[in-house]
Computed example of a mutant assay.
Amino acid sequence: MKRLSFSFPRCKARGIAAVEFAIVLPLLALLLVMVVDLSRAIQAKIILLNISREGANLAARATSDLVGSSQTILNALAATTPPLDMNKRGMIYITKIMGPATAGQPNIVLEQYRWNAGVKSSGYQPASQVWNCGGWDSNGTCTTILKGASAPTVTLMQKQLADGELIYAVETFYNFDVLFGTLQIGSTTTPVLGPNLYSMTVF
């Protein structure tokens, strides 16, 4: 008994594979771009976290003269951020906070500094999320902080600081050039990765 065998010409099989690849290629390219965008956002977030930690450490060690050394610290932090372009897209704040004299009261803001070079080179100036200063001098020092009973208060680490205990909150902001915001997949929405990335460390 003879077996009958049917075979398609190889050129037809190749043509079908080429059509399938052409259909799938845009989807694969989109997924690749999304993965690259996600990895860039994660890298930027890690860099912001690292410089906020280092900034809090440096600020705490410069307690004797933070007024004179604040811009030096902020410039040094911004210089360690490549591939991020902090000069065009970043901002850094240092806020000095003291525990209240009366237990249970909010903590007191003693000083706040913002990175001057970032203000001068870009229009990106997000407000501090710890405490928002109303005015700045040419050295990047907040000029609206009053002393004594009129000192501004914050709820950051409320009821966790002893009388006179000092902490330094360093905030880093970055206006990330995100390619994709949120995606709607059915009834599920992916979280926003940008454009405003933020990190804070308290030391």
Rank of each mutant, 00 (worst) to 15 (best):
M1P: 14
M1Y: 14
S5L: 02
S7N: 12
R10Q: 12
C11F: 04
C11K: 10
C11I: 01
A13P: 02
A13K: 04
R14A: 09
G15Y: 09
I16Y: 06
A17Q: 12
A17H: 08
E20V: 11
V24T: 10
A29P: 04
A29S: 08
L30T: 07
V33M: 11
V36C: 02
A41S: 05
I42W: 13
L49H: 14
N50Q: 03
N57Y: 11
A59K: 10
T63E: 15
L66C: 01
V67M: 15
T72D: 08
L74M: 15
N75V: 07
L77D: 02
T80L: 03
P82D: 07
P82E: 02
D85Y: 02
M86K: 04
K88C: 07
K88M: 09
I92M: 09
I94K: 00
T95R: 08
G99N: 07
G99D: 06
G99K: 00
G99W: 05
A101S: 06
A103H: 05
P106M: 06
V109M: 09
L110V: 12
R114W: 13
V119W: 06
K120P: 01
K120V: 12
S121G: 01
S122W: 05
G123F: 05
Y124W: 02
S128L: 11
V130L: 13
G134I: 14
S138H: 06
S138A: 06
N139D: 08
N139A: 11
T141P: 05
K147G: 08
K147M: 09
A149K: 07
Q160Y: 13
D163S: 06
G164M: 01
E165F: 02
V170R: 04
Y174S: 02
N175S: 01
F176A: 12
L179P: 01
F180V: 04
G181F: 08
T182R: 08
L183V: 15
Q184E: 12
Q184C: 09
I185H: 01
G186N: 01
S187V: 00
T188R: 12
T188E: 00
T189R: 06
L193Q: 09
G194C: 07
G194E: 11
P195G: 05
N196I: 03
Y198V: 01
S199H: 13
M200R: 15
T201N: 15
V202T: 07
F203I: 10
